[in-house]
Simulated assay, not measured.
Amino acid sequence: MDDTVVVPPQDLGTRPGRKGLTVAKVTIYSIAEELGVHASTVSRAFSRPDLVKDDVRQRVLDTAERLGFQPSRVARRLATGSTGAIGLLVPDITNPFFPPLVREIQAAAGEVTVVLVDAQGSAEAEPALIARLRAQVDGILLASPLASDDVLREAIGSTPTVVLNREIHDLPSVVSDMSTALHAAGDYVYGNGHRRVALLTGTVGSWAAEQRRDAIRAWAATTDVALTELGPFDASYDGGRAAASALLDTDATAAFAFDDLTACGVIAGLAEAGERVPDDRSVIGCDDVLLARVVTPTLSTVRTPNEELAQTAIATLQAAVAGEETASARLEGTFEPRQSIASAA
């Protein structure tokens, strides 16, 4: 028995018969019969193309396409150890940041199947979810994971892995560097006359929250603004409303929120207290999710380069799966000024 045999698919293809068009299951044996080659040659054309001459492989592929044959994914895994799939773990699919990113990753992956797993906001759930993914995929993308570095490394084991929007020692990462864009946002706020600014910090332990906090601190240090740090607050709409309550106890005329969802909660919380954005206070978010463009007033924010992030992550993971050398990447965000910033009163 040839150890690279591809199991025939369940789909039915159409083949011309002597008495007209008939329906029959297309197999590697029918392709081999048509080409006058051994079935194992057809099998290797799909599972080990490097072992088949170029002209023969092309004839096999052309005939398979004409007959409507597709090699079984299960068979390919048995023959090559490859699943043709990658895993994508997100911490919370209900966060509006992740659906557009998932779409871009799927587009960048092309014909590769993307297996999506949602941790539902639980760091404790991530190791078991990663273990389940490892059994089904060739490699894993971890998008903004919540668990500790050590826990994640142990869960990943030897599975090729790329981390998005977080840096973990010894793992390739692709992150959005918001520093330059947040400096630009700060300068825009400063140019509108704001000298008392609040920083509404994000969730404790969040890599992105720490990076954004440090960027705002660095910007403030280059100016004469009085920076007030509040929080940490949960990266959620309700977290933003809690941040608004704290903001009301300060004299800050502008506030940087961890992300757009939090910023929208801030706007709502201020409105409930009788303050209007941007007439009474200006608010800046981060990520540029759809919500930032449809909320009233439209939200000034920093845009994450999702398309480039996804393409770079997929390319890096493909290199890791192939056993090639990989390198981490930092992609810059861009500042998008909108209606939520006005001149200081």
Score class of each variant (00 low, 15 high):
residue 89 L to T: 02
residue 107 A to P: 12
residue 84 G to F: 10
residue 99 P to Q: 09
residue 71 P to N: 00
residue 87 G to M: 04
residue 68 G to F: 01
residue 77 R to S: 13
residue 81 G to Y: 05
residue 70 Q to C: 09
residue 75 A to H: 05
residue 109 A to V: 03
residue 65 E to L: 14
residue 64 A to S: 10
residue 87 G to A: 04
residue 101 L to T: 10
residue 65 E to A: 14
residue 70 Q to D: 10
residue 109 A to T: 07
residue 110 G to S: 03
residue 90 V to G: 07
residue 104 E to V: 03
residue 60 V to R: 00
residue 60 V to E: 00
residue 65 E to D: 15
residue 60 V to S: 02
residue 71 P to Q: 02
residue 74 V to G: 14
residue 58 Q to D: 13
residue 85 A to G: 02
residue 76 R to T: 14
residue 63 T to D: 01
residue 88 L to Q: 03
residue 100 P to H: 06
residue 106 Q to W: 05
residue 97 F to S: 07
residue 103 R to S: 15
residue 101 L to R: 04
residue 64 A to M: 00
residue 91 P to F: 03
residue 67 L to R: 03
residue 69 F to S: 00
residue 92 D to F: 14
residue 88 L to P: 09
residue 73 R to H: 11
residue 107 A to C: 08
residue 73 R to M: 12
residue 73 R to D: 14
residue 99 P to E: 06
residue 94 T to D: 14
residue 105 I to L: 13
residue 58 Q to L: 08
residue 76 R to A: 11
residue 86 I to Q: 10
residue 104 E to A: 15
residue 82 S to K: 14
residue 67 L to E: 06
residue 62 D to A: 08
residue 68 G to C: 01
residue 77 R to F: 13
residue 65 E to W: 11
residue 104 E to R: 12
residue 100 P to N: 06
residue 100 P to R: 01
residue 59 R to F: 04
residue 93 I to C: 09
residue 65 E to C: 06
residue 110 G to P: 07
residue 100 P to K: 01
residue 82 S to E: 14
residue 60 V to Y: 00
residue 69 F to D: 00
residue 90 V to L: 04
